[in-house]
């Protein structure tokens, strides 16, 4: 079974890096590709699951290939196209390309080549091989809802916290967090962050036992404060530097 999680060192020594692309440039490409999937997806009324699946494919793909060999926007299109089929929300390839064209300037769209649809079709097979047909991907969203159900406290505040955590998950798609941690862990960390920022302190939860020191002990074992803060830091950096207003596209 393929394993999709990487440590820091792997994330720095990527195929793109070995191909002469500096890490921060690669991170920007990843962010732009992910953002493009989110924007294309929301323009086509695709749900957050389909969009997130497409983004995860995108990040995994570039752990095996260089951004120099595979320009990011056509890869992004292909990831969204495949995710649409896998999540049973299929969109016609030509329609995705149409939307992509409307979102990109002429120069960027030129990377789609002479026959964009044929290119995407070819890329689909490369993508499938690269992600080893491991098509079903889980996302933090479902876990957020699951965790929220167990937490006790003021309903409005709780709701606000979940909403905020949801937005952080959307933002985290633009980072490589999904290549580092399981969705359960990301959900815990971003809920923790949202709790801190919305000043909602979770003091009690359903299923609490004396062994639990925090609510997440119930769901994920061995989460340290250090880990939570690292994840929040990575997600937060992005949230702060995000130039897009509202983060509303995935609602």
């Amino acid at each position: 079974m393929p394993y999709w999680y990487y440590d820091r060192k792997d994330l720095q020594n990527t195929p793109s890096f070995r191909d002469g692309i500096p890490n921060d440039t690669e991170n920007r490409y990843r962010k732009e590709g992910a953002r493009f999937i989110i924007d294309t997806g929301s323009k086509m009324d695709l749900g957050y699951n389909t969009v997130a699946t497409g983004v995860v494919y995108f990040h995994r793909f570039y752990m095996f290939h260089s951004f120099r060999t595979f320009p990011r926007y056509i890869t992004a299109c292909c990831c969204l196209f495949l995710a649409g089929k896998v999540e049973e929300t299929p969109k016609k390839c030509k329609d995705i390309i149409k939307v992509a064209k409307s979102l990109l300037n002429e120069h960027k769209f030129s990377t789609f080549g002479e026959d964009p649809k044929e290119e995407v079709m070819t890329l689909e097979r490369i993508l499938l091989q690269t992600i080893k047909f491991d098509l079903q991907v889980e996302h933090p969203y479902g876990y957020l809802l699951k965790y929220a159900k167990c937490l006790k406290g003021d309903k409005t505040k709780l709701q606000k916290m979940v909403q905020m955590a949801w937005t952080f998950v959307n933002d985290s798609l633009c980072t490589t967090l999904c290549l580092q941690w399981e969705p359960e862990v990301i959900a815990v960390a971003l809920m923790f962050l949202a709790g801190k920022l919305s000043k909602f302190e979770v003091v009690d939860w359903n299923g609490r036992t004396p062994k639990h020191t925090a609510w997440w002990d119930m769901f994920v074992e061995d989460i340290t404060m250090e880990l939570l803060e690292d994840i929040c830091h990575q997600a937060n950096v992005i949230a702060d530097s995000m130039q897009y207003p509202g983060n509303a596209s995935l609602r």
Partner: peptide, 26 residues
């Protein structure tokens, strides 16, 4: 934005190369 990024500073990559790369996957 179009001036940023290494792939856009060169001529667009020839996408025919995708077919060559896929040969690696045989």
């Amino acid at each position: 934005m179009s001036s940023s990024g290494s792939s856009s500073s060169q001529s667009p990559p020839n996408m025919a190369s995708i077919s060559d790369v896929s040969a690696l996957f045989q």
